[in-house]
Design a protein around this nucleic acid. Structure first.
Length: 410
DNA sequence: AACCCACATTCCACTGAG
DNA sequence: CTCAGTGGAATGTGGGTT
């Protein structure tokens, strides 16, 4: 029988190499997808490259797009779906999704092959099981989810299996202009979910000092990973300074943690004509770093740069099903509630109610005071914010809830 | 040399349109 | 009924590791 598929990638994979950045190279994606992808990446032992190229066949960003595509896929009602337990057009959907999100073409056959591989790994099996369980439930909504172990997300599978690797990042969108652009005021209404800076500026006009707060003091450092077009571009560790503040709720003393965003790379970002091609992932880790029992980061944030005049991508970070189907950013989703790891923490996790912020909101984004254009990229408690936009964290230190669905308070 | 692993290719069962 | 299209299991391939 002739194959009905286009020939899968004529360039057979001939080279293997160590992960391009397997330890932490996860392209910025949905926090939940990130968790799943991280687990998959952690279980990978080596990477094959396309023939004649250094490019891996399934680099982290494609892996993320694949998982994301699987999450987004909704099976159509068909006989084959019901009787065979198959998912019609799933591989094609995923292949298209990969192309749409990464610009890289992978054939449905390659997708199928990769999925087959994933099924052979423990973490991949868990992830695929949860995803396919949800697909089954879409086709058989009357069946109780418990019969198949419950529907959820790939990340949920990891958490349930105790494999949740790390805290998933919050996402912050920084409206920016090309390096050569003249700075002008402008704004657009925020979309849902994540944080957005209030006005577009060239990066060089932003002071890259990031400040956040906690009710307790713990020495830590920032690990920055810079991605360009989803590819690892730079990595560095930066110190975090701690200062005392008395501006907490009801005059509760708290600590302000300050760090510079990618200090060795910031100038490079400022010079970039298209800063939107970059994303910066920050993880704040307790120091000294434990060598025998790797701790999850205290804080994980992805900074995205978007064109000032344009609305930020609605799909990035791509929401996962079932959240994607509703389009809602739901901080109380079952996922977020179920996903708190049990890592023992010794740091306070008390809420910090910022002025004007919702009591339950993990993040508070305070309005910009347009009076001072010397604007640092100021991520700090609203009560001490001077300029730019303010950013506060609740429950972040030690709580490690992977979902920091922020409230935007503009 | 044997083994492992990532990925490609082949084969098969099946659906659905014509 | 035929056949194109599809998903998935089985098998093949080739480079790295032991």
């Amino acid at each position: 029988m002739s194959m009905g598929h286009s020939k899968a990638s004529s360039s057979a994979a001939l080279k293997r190499s160590r992960s391009p950045s397997a330890d932490r190279a996860v392209a910025p994606a949905s926090p939940n997808t990130n968790a799943a992808v991280k687990s998959i990446l952690n279980s990978r032992k080596c990477w094959r490259s396309l023939k004649g190229k250094e490019e891996p066949v399934w680099p982290p960003q494609l892996e993320a797009a694949l998982i994301e595509g699987l999450e987004r896929y909704k099976p159509s009602e068909s006989k084959s779906t019901r009787t065979l337990g198959r998912f019609p057009m799933r591989n094609k959907f995923v292949a298209d999704h990969i192309f749409e999100t990464t610009g890289v073409r992978r054939t449905p056959k390659q997708v199928g092959s990769r999925i087959q591989q994933l099924r052979d790994t423990q973490s991949g099996k868990q992830i695929l099981k949860v995803i396919s369980d949800r697909h089954y439930e879409m086709m058989h909504p009357h069946r109780a989810s418990s019969s198949r172990g419950g529907a959820g997300t790939a990340a949920c599978a990891l958490q349930n299996s105790g494999m949740m690797p790390t805290l998933s990042p919050s996402h912050i969108w920084v409206k920016t202009l090309p390096a050569s652009a003249a700075w002008r005021f402008g704004s657009y209404p925020p979309s849902t979910g994540d944080l957005h800076s209030s006005m577009p500026r060239p990066l060089r006009l932003i002071n890259p000092t990031v400040t956040f707060s906690s009710l307790s003091q713990a020495p830590c450092q920032s690990i920055f990973t810079v991605y360009r077009h989803g590819e690892l571009a730079h990595q560095e560790i930066a110190p975090v300074s701690i200062t005392a503040s008395t501006s907490g709720p009801a005059a509760t003393p708290c600590w302000l943690y300050s760090t510079t965003l990618v200090p060795k790379y910031w100038a490079h970002l400022c010079d970039a004509e298209d800063p939107t091609s970059y994303a910066v992932h920050q993880e704040v880790m307790r120091v000294p770093l434990s060598t025998h029992a790797p701790a999850p980061p205290l804080l994980s944030v992805c900074y995205h740069f978007v064109h000032g005049g344009a609305a930020p991508p609605q799909h990035s970070p791509p929401p996962l099903s079932p959240r994607s189907s509703s389009g809602a950013s739901d901080a109380s989703s079952s996922l977020s509630r179920e996903s708190s790891p049990t890592y023992p923490h010794d740091v306070d996790a008390k809420p910090y109610a910022f002025p004007g912020g919702a009591g339950a909101s993990p993040l508070v984004f305070a309005p910009y005071d347009a009076g001072s254009p010397a604007s640092p990229l100021d991520l700090r408690a609203a009560s001490v914010g001077v300029d730019g936009w303010s950013y506060g964290l609740q429950d972040s230190f030690g709580a490690c809830d992977p979902i920091f669905d922020p409230y935007i308070n503009l």
